[in-house]
């Protein structure tokens, strides 16, 4: 009896973690910033948003300004906590995600 209730509690905890989602700081640069209409925002994303690609999909569904910013597939780049990443990168443990066009410095 004890063992069973312990397992149940654990399963609930796992489930809660999986669906709780996470809080992220999003930053936008150059024309991505201009299209989104802001430089920075804090968002609470649902638990099924697990990768950078998922996050883009979730943002695009939020409104036309995001749709415009991410309209050209594969053009907008991302950084996760200040490191360049690809769309498949996991958001686990991430704090700050940035979206921007290909860099043009130097």
């Amino acid at each position: 009896m004890n063992a069973v209730s312990s397992v149940t509690t654990k399963d609930k905890a796992v489930q809660a973690t999986a669906t709780a989602g996470q809080r992220l700081t999003l930053r936008y640069f150059a024309w991505v910033r201009e299209k989104v209409g802001r430089a920075e925002e804090v968002v609470d994303v649902p638990g099924d948003v697990a990768t950078i690609g998922d996050l883009v999909g979730w943002l695009v569904a939020r409104g036309p300004e995001y749709e415009a910013a991410f309209a050209r597939p594969g053009v907008v780049r991302a950084a996760l906590d200040h490191v360049h990443v690809k769309p498949g990168a996991s958001l686990a443990g991430a704090r700050e995600i940035a979206f921007f066009p290909p860099v043009t410095g130097g």
């Binding site: 640069f29 150059a30 024309w31 950084a79 360049h84 940035a98 921007f100 066009p101 290909p102 860099v103 043009t104 410095g105 130097g106």
Partner: peptide
């Protein structure tokens, strides 16, 4: 310089004498 131009997070915006402004496109050559 090659590394800086293709990795460092900088973006250039050009403003022209005719009043228009554009973000510089990334060059494949970089």
């Amino acid at each position: 310089m090659d590394y800086l131009k293709s990795r460092a997070p900088f973006w250039k915006k050009e403003a022209f004498e005719d009043g228009t402004e554009t973000w510089v496109d990334a060059r494949e050559t970089d």
